[in-house]
Design a protein around this nucleic acid. Sequence first.
DNA 1: TCGCATCCTGACCATATGGTCAATACGAAA
DNA 2: TTTCGTATTGACCATATGGTCAGGATGCGA
Lengths: 215, 215
Amino acid sequence: MPETARISRIRSGRRTDIRQQNERLILDAAERVFAEAGFGGATMQLIADMAGLPKANLHYYFPTKEALYRRVVQNIFEIWLDAASSFDGAAGPVEGIGAYVEAKMNISRRHPHGSKVWAAEVMHGAPVIQDYLETTLRQWTEGRMAVIQRWIDEGKMAPIDPRHLLYMLWATTQHYADFGHQIETLNAGQPLSDAQWREATESVKQIILRGIGAI
Amino acid sequence: MPETARISRIRSGRRTDIRQQNERLILDAAERVFAEAGFGGATMQLIADMAGLPKANLHYYFPTKEALYRRVVQNIFEIWLDAASSFDGAAGPVEGIGAYVEAKMNISRRHPHGSKVWAAEVMHGAPVIQDYLETTLRQWTEGRMAVIQRWIDEGKMAPIDPRHLLYMLWATTQHYADFGHQIETLNAGQPLSDAQWREATESVKQIILRGIGAI
DNA sequence: TCGCATCCTGACCATATGGTCAATACGAAA
DNA sequence: TTTCGTATTGACCATATGGTCAGGATGCGA
C-alpha cells in the first residue's frame, strides 16, 4: 500500500467516505453536548467547536438541530436494543438476566452520554421517539415479559411481576450512567475503577437474581 | 366573617402573605416547566404563563432564571432528604428499607417533576448543587451505609455492598418518576392506578429485601 | 385622608442562536 | 486539463429570550 494512499485514507478518506466520517465526528460531539447541556442548552456552535468544524458545515450534513438530535437518540436506542440479544436463547434467569445486566452495565460505562440523552428525552415526554416507545419498545418489552413468565411457570424463579422486574433492570443499570456524576462525587470524586465496575455489576446481579429467587 | 374579607383573603391574602403566595405559584410552575423542557428549554415567559403572572413579575420575586432554578432544585433536595427519616430508628432492614422504599415511591408519585429536575441537574454535572452532593449527600450516604453495615454485622441481612444497595434503592424508586412517561406508554398510555402503584412498590420491596437476604 | 412600602406590568433593549446563502475549494472521472 | 458533483465556510439575518425600568396601582398604618 503506497504511503500517500494510507495517509490520504486517514486524513480524509476516499471521497465517498468523507460524509460518513464527518457525520460520525459530528454525532459524537453532539451526543456529548446534548448529554451535558440538554437539547435546549446545547448550541450548534458548541457542537461545531467540539467536532472541530465550522458551524455552517454542521448544517450541510444535518439540516436542523432537531434532525441532528434525532439521529443521536436513534443511535442510542439501537445500541440499547442490541443488549436484548443477551436475553435471548438463555436457558434460565441466571444466565439470561445475568448476561443482560452485564451488557447493560457495559453500555452504561461505554456510552454514558447516550444514556443521558435517552433519559432526558424520555423525561421530557419523548417528543422525538414516542413512536419508538409505542412500537419497538412495546414489542420488545412484551417479548421479554413472556420469556420471564415462562421461567416462572417452569419454576426457575419466584412469581415476580415481569414488568417491574424489567423496570428494575433498566433503572439499576442505567443509573450508573445517568447518575454517574453523583456516583463519582460519592466515590471521592474519582471515576469508578475497573474493579469497582465489576463490584457494581456483581452487586446488581446478586441482589436481583437472589431477589427473584433464581439463586 | 364579611364576604369581602374572605374573598380578599383568597385572592391576595394578607399583604404580608402575597410574597409567599406568589413565590409558591411561581415555584410550582417553574418546577413543571423545568422538568418538561429542561433548564435551557424552559422560558421565563412559559413559566409566567403557567403561573398566570406577567413575566416581569417573575423577575420581581426571582432576580434571574438561574436563581429561580436554584430554588426549585433546593426544594426537591429537601423533600428527597426528608425520606431519610424512614430509614432511621428502624430495628432492621425489613422495616427500615421497606419504609424507605415506600417513602421514595410516594415522592416519585407526588413530585414527579421535582424528581426529573433533580435527575437532569445531576446528569448535567450538578452545576448548581455540587456543594450539596459533596456535603449533605455525602454525609447522609455515609450515615446510612453505616446503618446497613451494622445490620450486616448483626446477621440481619446478607453481606451486600451498602453503597450499591443505596444506589439500587435510589435508581429503582426514582425510575418511576423520571421514566414515568415510558412506563405510562408501556401501560397502554394510562397513568398507573392506585393498585398499580401498590404493586410496583411491593415488587421493588420484595425483590430488594429478598435480594439482600432480609426475608 | 395621607404617606409610604410593597407590588405590578407594558414597553423596551442587548444579545445569543438557529439557520441561510453565495462564493469557493476540492478531487475524481473523462 | 476540463468538468462537475461534492464539500467548505465566512458573513449575514430574523427571531427568541433573559433581563431592565419607569411609571402606576394597592393597601396598611398613622
